[in-house]
Amino acid sequence: MRKAPKAVDPIYLTPEWKVLARYIKQLRGYVCEMCSKDFSKLQHKLIADHIVERKDGGADLDPSNLQCLCTWCHNRKTAQAQKMRCQGVD
């Protein structure tokens, strides 16, 4: 049995998000803020990530709630946040 494909949250399709995400990546020099690797040549592998996840009350379009993470660091951070939510830890 296959897992259903993940649906994209509509906020990430808005022009406001796209402009903000591009701005944050450029502002932070295309560097992952967790592992410090340079993604200037692989910009598609860098994600503008909510520090406090939206599911946990983080602001959608607040630049102070955003960081740049590579896909590997982002997936690790997101998995940890999901685990904490499941355990009921704030």
Rank of each mutant, 00 (worst) to 15 (best):
A21T: 00
R22A: 14
W17I: 13
A21S: 14
Q43S: 07
K37N: 00
Q82G: 14
P5W: 11
Y23S: 12
V8D: 05
L27K: 15
R28N: 04
V89R: 07
V31H: 04
V89D: 03
D56E: 12
G88P: 08
Q80V: 15
N75H: 10
W72G: 00
H44N: 06
C70Y: 04
C73K: 09
M1H: 08
L42F: 06
C35W: 13
K18R: 15
C70F: 08
L66Q: 09
A4M: 09
E53D: 13
G58M: 13
C68N: 04
K55L: 08
G88I: 05
C32T: 01
Q26Y: 11
S64G: 11
E16S: 15
I11T: 13
D56L: 09
I24S: 00
D60H: 15
D90M: 04
H50G: 06
A21L: 11
H50T: 01
V89H: 07
W17A: 12
C86R: 15
K25R: 12
R54N: 12
D60Q: 15
M1R: 09
K25W: 01
H50N: 03
H50E: 06
D38T: 06
S36P: 00
C68E: 00
Q67L: 10
Q67V: 08
D38L: 02
D90P: 08
I24N: 00
V89E: 04
A7P: 03
G57R: 09
P63W: 09
G58L: 13
